[in-house]
Write a protein that binds this DNA or RNA. Structure first.
Lengths: 405, 405
DNA sequence: CTGAAAGCGCTTACAG
DNA sequence: CTGAAAGCGCTTACAG
C-alpha cells in the first residue's frame, strides 16, 4: 500500500507538505504543489481515511436503527435519511434490529466505541430512559421519547388524527376500526407519541357520535400477522364501514375486503397512515395521510448535527483552531474525487451547518400550523412521556385516493 | 476520553497488558487480569475501535450499493445482506445511487480510502469493465457482470423463465406480455444476466405457439413510471391474457386491470417476478417467482469473504502470525459487550470462515438443479458478457397465488 | 507471564 | 512557505 511517506519521498518534500496538498489546507507554493501532485499521480496515491478518522475521532458515519427495512415505512425513512446524510457528507450505517436478531444494544456499543458519530433511533426499545440518558454520545430519536436530553423528531400526529377524523365525519362513516400497535404501549410512561393520533381520532369521532373500535396489529416487522388481523376485523365487527391503519395494514384490509365482495369505497372506506409506495400498489390507490419523509430526515439530520457539535465542545479543545481551517472549507461538495488527488478535506459537514446548529437551539415546531390548537381536542403531553421540549414536529398531509368517498 | 493509558496507569500495569486483557489474547495472570478489569470498570473504559481499525486496516464494514431501498426488491435484498453480514460480525453501509444523486463512483472512492472492506454492487453502472477490474479491492456483483475477476451472484433466471413459461403454457395463455428493463441493455456486451430469463420465456412460448410481446418499463427506481406503463399495455395490446413482470410492475398491472373491469385470473393472469412482500399486498395475492434472498445474501457474503481473504494475502505479510491468534478466537459471537470489558477481538469473521474461503475457490453452482439443462433452450453465456466462471447461481421457486389459473 | 518500544497512516501546532 | 516532531489510541513482535 502506497502511503503519504512514499509520496513525500518521491516528491522530495516532507510529510507535512504532502498532507497540506492532499487536504488543500494552508499555503503551499505552486512548485511544491506540482511536485507533490505529480508524485501522487505516479504512485496512484489514495489517502487512507482510517488514519484521519483516528486523529479526528470522527467517522462521518451515522447509524440508523430501524426494526426492518423490509417494511416500506422504514425503507422510505431510511432512504430519506441516507439521501439527507449523503448531501451533508455523512455515511449511513444500516442497523436493523428485527433483521439481525440483535437489539439496539450492539449498535449503541458501536457508537460508544466510536465506530459511528451518532445514532438515529427509530426502533422499539425496552431499555428505560436512564439507559438512554446515560449514553453521552449523539442520539436522536424518531417518533418516540427516549429520555430527557434525547431530542425527538416526529410527524404531527394530532394533525393526522384530525385530518382522518374530519374526513370520516364528513363522509358519513358510522363504524370505524382503528388498527394500530399494542394498546398497552400507549399508557403510562409510553415512549410512543403515536398515541396522540389515536386519541385525537377517538375523541373527535366520539364527539360526532361515530362508533370506533381499536384493533391491535402484530409487531411492525411481522407483515404476515396483518393478514390474520384483517380477517379478524371483518369476522368480529360486522357493520364496519371504515378502516384506518398503517399502509401495510390498510392494504391487507383492502385485499380482504375484496375477497369478501365488499365494494370499496361504497361499502367500506380505507385510509392508510404513512403514505409509502404501498398506497400506489394495493389494488386501488389508497387514500392516505402522508408523512413528510424528506422533512423528517432533514430535521433528524439537523438534530444530529447539533448533538455532534455539542459533543465536540465538551471534548478535547482542538476546536480553538477550527475556525482557522474554515477558509479552506470552500470546496464543500468536492468529496467525490476520482482516484487520487483532489480535495479530500472532511469536517466540512459540521462546519457548513454551523448556522443551523446555532439557530436551532430553541425547541422548534416545523410548520406553523403544527402548533395550532387541535379542534376542541386536548391531548395531554404528559401522558406521552413528557417530551414537549427538544422535540420537532413535522406536518402531515391528506392524500385522497380511490378508497374513500 | 478515557483511554488504555489511563487504565494501565490506574491498574499499575503496562499498556500491553491492558491490551491483552481487553482482547482476551495471550496469557495474563489472574491477578493482573483482575487489576486491569477493575480499573476498566472504575474508569468506564471503552476501547476505541478506530485505533484498532487503523492498525488492522479493517473496518469490518461492507458497502452495499443499491439503486434505492424504497424499491421493495432492493429493500429485501439489503435487509437480507444486513442480517447475513451482522451474523458474520460485519456492518452494512448503505450506499444508494438513486436516493443520493450520486453514482457508484463516490462509494468506490470510499472503498479505496479504506472506509469499507468491500462493496456489494447491485446497482446499474455505466462504468466499463476495465474500470471495475482496475479496482484492486474486494467487490462482488449481484445479478450483473462487471468484468473479469469480479465474482457474480444471481438467481437462476433460466429456471425462473422455465417456470413461468411452463405455467403459461399449461394454463392455456394465448397472448403474453413480458415487462422488463430497457431491451437495449440486453444486447451486445450486456451486464445483465436477466436477459436469460426473458430469452428463455420467449423461446419456450414461441415453441408453444403463444404470442409474446416485450414491454419496456422505466428505470427500476421510478415506481410511478410503472403506472403509465400498465395503462400502455392495456391500451396497445387488446387481447392480452397474461402479464409477467417484477412485483411492482405486476401490482400496477393488477390495479389497472381492476380499473378496466378485467377479472383476474379469468380474463388475465399476472405473474410477479421477485417475490417481495408486495405480492402479499397488491389487492390479490400475486403468483410469483420468488428469489431466494437469504441464499443470495449468504452467497454474496461468502464471495466477499473470499475476496477479502485474497486481498489479505497479497498485502502486508502480518498474516504469518494470524494463525497464532486463532486460539483466542473462540469467543465468536461475543461481539456485543455491554459497556466496558469483555471480549472485543475482531478478525474472527474471516478466521471463522476460513473453511468456506478455501473450499470455494472453485466456481460453484449453488443448488444442484441450477446446472440442469434448460428444457430444450440454450442461452449463450457469451451474449451476456462472458461471466460463466466466478459466478454463483441461486435457484428460484414458483409460488402460486390468486392471480393465475 | 510482563513491559518498553516501534508502528498503523495521517494531522497539526511549532520552529525555522 | 516548509520540515522535524509529537501524537491520535491501540497492537504486536521482541526482550526480559
Amino acid at each position: 500500500m502506497v502511503g503519504m511517506r512514499d509520496v513525500a519521498k518521491k516528491a522530495g518534500v516532507s510529510l507535512s507538505t504532502v498532507s497540506l496538498v492532499v487536504n488543500n489546507t494552508g499555503y503551499v507554493s505552486d512548485v511544491m504543489r506540482a511536485k507533490v501532485e505529480a508524485a501522487m499521480r505516479e504512485l496512484d496515491y489514495i489517502p487512507n481515511e482510517l488514519a484521519r478518522n483516528l486523529y479526528h475521532d470522527r467517522t462521518n458515519t451515522i447509524g440508523v436503527i430501524m426494526p426492518t427495512i423490509v417494511h416500506p415505512f422504514f425503507a422510505t425513512l431510511t432512504a430519506a435519511l441516507q439521501r439527507e446524510f449523503a448531501s451533508r457528507g455523512l455515511k449511513t450505517l444500516l442497523c436493523s434490529t428485527a433483521d439481525a436478531n440483535t437489539g439496539e444494544g450492539e449498535y449503541v456499543d458501536m457508537l460508544q466505541r466510536h465506530m459511528m458519530d451518532g445514532i438515529i433511533m427509530a426502533a422499539h426499545t425496552e431499555h428505560p430512559a436512564d439507559y438512554w440518558t446515560s449514553i453521552s454520545r449523539p442520539i436522536v430519536a424518531f417518533d418516540r421519547f427516549l429520555g430527557a436530553g434525547v431530542p425527538t423528531v416526529r410527524s404531527d400526529h394530532e394533525q393526522g388524527g384530525r385530518l382522518v377524523a374530519q374526513h370520516l365525519i364528513a363522509s358519513g362513516a358510522r363504524h370505524v376500526i382503528l388498527a394500530g400497535g399494542p394498546r398497552a404501549q400507549f399508557s403510562g410512561g409510553t415512549t410512543f407519541p403515536t398515541v396522540r393520533y389515536h386519541l385525537t381520532v377517538e375523541r373527535m369521532l366520539a364527539a360526532a357520535g361515530i362508533a370506533c373500535d381499536y384493533v391491535e396489529v402484530g409487531a411492525v416487522a411481522d407483515v404476515t400477522a396483518h393478514e390474520a388481523m384483517a380477517r379478524r376485523i371483518f369476522d368480529r365487527y360486522q357493520g364496519v364501514d371504515a378502516i384506518v391503519g398503517a399502509d401495510v395494514v390498510a392494504a391487507m384490509a383492502l385485499q380482504e375486503a375484496g375477497r369478501r365482495g365488499l365494494d370499496v369505497p361504497r361499502d367500506l372506506q380505507v385510509i392508510a397512515y404513512d403514505g409509502t409506495l404501498i398506497t400506489e400498489l394495493a389494488g386501488k390507490r389508497l387514500t392516505s395521510v402522508r408523512q413528510d419523509f424528506p422533512a423528517i430526515a432533514a430535521a433528524l439530520a439537523d438534530c444530529m448535527n447539533e448533538q455532534i457539535a455539542a459533543g465536540d465542545d465538551s471534548g478535547r479543545q482542538s476546536g480553538a483552531k477550527r475556525s482557522g481551517t474554515a477558509d479552506a472549507a470552500a470546496a464543500d461538495a468536492a468529496t467525490s474525487t476520482d482516484a487520487a488527488g483532489g480535495n479530500m478535506s472532511d469536517g466540512d459537514a459540521s462546519g457548513g451547518n454551523a448556522v443551523d446548529a446555532v439557530s436551532a437551539g430553541v425547541p422548534a415546531a416545523a410548520g406553523s400550523d403544527a402548533v395550532e390548537a387541535i379542534g376542541g381536542v386536548t391531548v395531554g403531553a404528559g401522558e406521552a412521556g413528557g417530551g414537549a421540549e427538544n422535540e420537532r414536529v413535522i406536518p402531515v398531509s391528506f392524500i385522497p385516493g380511490e378508497t374513500t368517498r
